[in-house]
Amino acid sequence: MNHDSYPDSYIRGILNTVKTVAMVGFSPNTARPSYFVFKYLNERGFKVIPINPGHAGKEFLGQTCYASLSEVPEPIDMVDIFRAPQFVVPVVEEALKLTPKPRVIWMQLTIRNDEAAAMAEAEGLKVVMNRCPKIEYGRLSSEISWMGINSRTLSNRRAQNLGGGFQRMGLGDGRKPGE
């Protein structure tokens, strides 16, 4: 995988199939970027499980926080990493020991560790680095366009409402399967 740029289909494929996301480096401070992403993805139908040893056992938006990935009592589809690049390898090592293994390792905007990425890819996991799943979701759902942000997408199909309100859009691209 070329980690300098990702095709939209690759990102869309990940966000359309993962349901349970463990967020390593979650902050309960509501002004921090990790809390923004945690809240946003929860509101878009993902189950985001916060991981932070300092807050283990507490609940945030109805989700129990755990001290580490290995303590999460359910399968994890994707690990979203909010840690500086030098701390990423141990997180990926821990993720690869899970049963079942997660399908995706995602490193947040500004975070890239090619060694960790190679480890995960060798085990068949998909890897995304230096991207934010909130921004990518907003971009591919067209929600981000409301903020004047260049979504770098064109389409002759309308964006799909997720239901439950006017301003929550889904990741469908307006095409039926196989179309």
């Binding site: 509501t30 809390y35 923004f36 809240k39 946003y40 509101e43 907003g138 929600e143 981000i144 409301w146 903020m147 439950g164 309100g165 006017f166 301003q167 929550r168």
Partner: peptide, 20 residues
């Protein structure tokens, strides 16, 4: 623009959601 619900309004005002 009407808010979907109180949480949605809070998310918008807090810049945590994209929207109008």
């Amino acid at each position: 623009y009407v808010f979907d619900d109180v949480d949605h309004a809070a998310s918008l005002f807090g810049l945590q959601a994209f929207g109008n």
